[in-house]
Design a protein around this nucleic acid. Structure first.
Length: 113
DNA sequence: GCCTTGACGTTAG
DNA sequence: ACTAACGCCAAGG
């Protein structure tokens, strides 16, 4: 069965919304879960459209970081709300704008476990 | 309708 | 171990 573009975006938002508090996920993990091998860029683009959809409050995009744990999307957030948000979740930061991804890494399949 | 850019990731040197 | 280039999908110009 073929998936429409809208479904792809919706799926991304759904997975991101499933990220538990105090945990972070990566674009690649989400992309891989959907079926995209190296289409992690699409995931980022989808989150960018979040602002256009005005659902930023429903989708914790601040919990999504790259595989290095760097807050690459912090520039798209008002001020440092992304970093403060993660700190509010007791997420440990290895650097100013880098979270301890190896410790707080969360995979979409963990909910299945 | 073609080309460039982008919240990334992997492989090669 | 670090740096450079290529690849992927989607949207805007």
């Amino acid at each position: 069965m073929k998936q429409e573009n809208s479904d792809l975006y919706d799926r991304i938002y759904e997975i991101v919304s499933r990220i538990p508090s105090g945990k972070v996920s990566t674009y690649g993990a989400i992309a891989a879960y959907i079926g995209l091998v190296s289409g992690a860029r699409v995931v980022g683009y989808a989150l960018n459209n979040l602002d256009l959809r005005n659902v930023s409050n429903s989708v914790p995009a601040h919990r999504v970081v790259n595989r290095l744990g760097q807050l690459t999307g912090r520039a798209h957030f008002p001020g440092d709300s992304m970093k403060e948000r993660l700190e509010q979740e007791n997420v440990m930061f290895t650097e100013e704008y880098t979270v301890d991804i190896q410790r707080h890494y969360w995979d979409p399949r963990e909910e299945l476990i």
